[in-house]
Design a protein around this nucleic acid. Structure first.
Length: 660
RNA sequence: GCCGACGUAGCUCAAUGGCAGAGCAAUCGAUUUGUAAUCGAUAGGUUACGAGUUCAACUCUCGUCGUCGGCUCCA
């Protein structure tokens, strides 16, 4: 992606869709640069690519930021802690790292911070920065450190961990990386346990280039069983213009939030009496869904899939067999008891497809078998995690299961990846990241099927397939499905949240539980491998993503209303209605705007709804059987006959083109 | 689920303890207009829901529901 000179990024870290020069993207967005799989023998060696000649510092999961920015943000976190202690001497500072766009600090305090507190803290921080205080480093023994932080149980826990070679999150460092050096940084009146680095003096920090953005609760060390701390987030950049630019981008991003556009364009609603996370699709949303399903059916027919249908409800036995119960029960809607039988709404389609596979005899000659279904699933997601269409409780999944032999695995897996890429090309999606999600040793037998050999084997199969297919990807541990590794397509919503848009999963475990088999060449019954794939994810998330991706300006083939016909005066309405009928007969979604407004206002309304074509009809058009065509881009194509207009639009629709 | 903020007309917002208002949208009327807002009128509300304090509650308190931002989670 970064190979292109100029790229169109949707959300990612830019929080809005922009065509950018790669160099600008690298500068502004600070892209995630992670382990990139290398071709060659054995496991690829992780490699951090430095796209910038400037010094960068790694933080978080494989992310980097320029060293100076890191120091500024990290130092501001300490200054924030100092300011907080000025107002709340009993607050217990815990950790305060730099993050994308800024920094945060978590405090143990008896009461959450108020908006007024935050304003005071921000003001105090500015005073400290302006005093040009120095940051001084000092290395101490664990016992000395304990003496300094004797009244702060969080810091004592960190010191104990450091003494054992753990990092901030209580995780073991990599062998030799385990450090016994404990360092303190002091600025002004405040000393913190910290590995650094920091600015030498606050004179390196622009007091106008940072801002406290929000506060919220956060669990100590990210574990919900631990104490709830209060986190304060700050935004920080080197220059004020960069902060202003960032704030401006956030404002722009809000305008294309799918929740806002979804309401404006009447695509979906939520209703309190229906329930949270249960979207209702208005007619415009219905059109989007049908267009996507038509596309999927065409593409999947070409790719050799068979379509199946399965029920929404099933007996508990099915999910006991699949292994979802009892482990997945808390993410399922509660059971229904009828006549002594327990039923569940399905959270996924796989077990049903497995049953379909099992219902027929299979020879190796029949494989691969590919069952596709836009299945409706229900998951009881935690209330706090619901977000518009991006995370819901009822969803329609572009699901399919492919049953194949190990020999067929690579070509089947890559055929799915190719399908992704075809879809993404149609939609112009290029700001995504393919992520090879791996198991973790610690999770074996808990989060993951306890079969270490098969994990390593299938992970290597996927890795090799991706390398052979020359598809760039990153690797991430502890993100696999319980039954096998997967390639997830990660995208960022316009407000900056990361989501899995599509997935392609290997399953080496569940087919056996369902006793699935085929008869191989040698006459022996064998268990097939299964691929779970959903290139278009769910309608809910995919459409939520598309709304933001296109900022509501859908390509012609998707646009719920493709043309609005605008009669200039009442005497043109009848002809306008005829034109609408004729265009509808040609398969175009056209409607007459016969409201009381003047033409200018009708154009304005259509423009705001991002309707692709505005067809103006006045005396001239009435006489010539024509329409005056205006595009939503503002371009005026002047008058053309109704037939000429239809002949222009239809191939654009049929080819899924982005042009109008 | 946890922490916090918020919930007023279809939408965006005003009214801080004393008669609930504006713009847009809707409806009706006038206008018949050539590429991003014609004029006028009408209608629209148990201020999310339920309790409490008060002479008086949109406003203060408690609970419930929902939304938003984080945290956690995300097969």
């Amino acid at each position: 992606m970064l190979g292109h000179d100029e790229i169109y990024f949707n959300a990612a870290r830019l929080e809005c869709s922009l065509a950018l020069k790669t160099a600008d993207y690298v500068r502004v967005a600070n892209p995630r640069i992670e382990k990139v799989a290398q071709s060659g023998e054995g496991n690829p060696k992780p490699k951090i690519q430095n796209l910038k000649s400037d010094e960068v510092i790694a933080y978080g999961k494989g992310k980097t930021m320029p060293a100076q920015l890191y120091k500024i943000r990290h130092s501001l976190a300490h200054i924030m802690a100092q300011a907080v202690l000025d107002f709340f001497p009993d607050a217990k500072p815990t950790i305060g790292p730099p993050v994308e766009n800024g920094f945060y600090y978590d405090f143990g305090v008896p009461k959450p911070f108020t908006a007024e507190d935050l304003a005071n803290i921000e003001g105090r921080m500015r005073e400290i920065v302006r005093k040009n205080v120095a940051f001084a480093r000092r290395e101490v023994s664990a016992d000395e450190a304990r003496a300094v932080f004797g009244n702060n149980p969080f810091k004592l826990e960190l010191i104990d961990g450091l003494a054992k070679g753990e990092d901030d999150m209580g995780e073991k460092g990599e062998g030799a990386a385990a450090s016994t050096v404990i360092s303190l940084y002091t600025q002004d009146t405040f000393t913190d346990l910290c590995r650094g680095p920091h600015v030498l003096s606050t004179s390196e920090i622009n007091p106008e280039a940072f801002k406290i953005s929000q506060s919220s609760g956060a669990y100590w060390r990210g574990d919900e069983k631990n104490a709830m701390l209060q986190r304060i987030y700050g935004l920080a950049f080197e220059k004020k213009e960069e902060l202003d630019h960032h704030l401006n981008m956030i404002e722009e991003a809000k305008k294309r939030d799918h929740r806002k556009i979804g309401a404006e364009q009447e695509i979906f609603i939520f209703d309190d009496e229906v329930g949270p996370g249960l979207p209702l699709w208005l007619p415009n949303g219905g059109i989007l869904i049908e267009q996507l399903e038509d596309l999927a059916k065409k593409m999947e027919l070409d790719a050799g899939y068979d379509r199946v249908r399965t029920p929404h409800v099933t007996k508990d036995q099915l999910f006991l067999r699949s292994g979802h119960l009892p482990y997945y029960a808390e993410s399922m809607f509660p059971p229904m008891e009828l006549d002594g039988v327990t039923y569940y709404m399905k959270p996924m389609n796989c077990p049903f497809h497995h049953k379909l596979f099992a219902a027929q005899q299979h020879s190796y000659r029949d494989l691969p078998v590919r069952f596709a279904e836009y299945g409706t699933c229900y998951r009881y997601e935690q209330s706090g995690e619901l977000q518009g269409l991006m995370r819901v409780r009822s969803m329609q999944m572009n699901d399919a299961h492919i049953y194949c032999t190990p020999e067929q695995f690579e070509s089947e897996f890559m055929a799915v990846i190719d399908l992704y890429l075809k879809y993404f090309k149609i939609f112009g999606i290029d700001a995504y990241q393919m992520r090879l999600s791996l198991h973790s040793k610690e999770g074996l037998g808990k989060k993951y099927v306890n079969n270490p050999e098969m994990w390593l084997k299938t992970e290597e199969m996927v890795r090799r397939a991706m390398i052979n297919g020359k598809v760039p990807f990153v690797e991430r541990e502890n993100e696999a499905a319980f039954y096998g590794p997967k390639i997830d397509v990660q995208i960022w919503s316009v407000v900056g949240r990361e989501f899995t848009l599509a997935t392609n999963q290997v399953d080496f475990a569940v087919p056996e539980r369902f006793d699935l088999k085929y008869v191989d060449k040698d006459g022996v019954e064998k268990v097939p491998l299964c691929l779970h794939r959903a290139p278009l994810g769910t309608h809910e998330r995919f459409i939520g993503f598309l709304i933001e991706h296109f900022a509501g300006a859908f390509p012609l083939w998707l646009a719920p209303q493709q043309a609005t016909i605008i009669p200039i005066a009442d005497r043109h309405v009848e002809f306008a209605q005829q034109v609408a009928k004729r265009l509808q007969a040609e398969g175009l979604r056209a409607k007459v705007d016969n409201g009381h407004d003047r033409m200018q206002n009708k154009i304005r309304k259509a423009q705001m709804l991002k309707i692709p074509y505005m067809l103006v009809i006045g005396d001239k058009e009435l006489a010539a059987d024509s329409v005056a065509v205006r595009l939503r881009t503002g371009e005026d194509l002047k008058s053309m006959t109704v037939n000429a207009f239809a002949a222009r639009a239809k191939p654009i629709i049929d080819s899924y083109a982005m042009t109008l």
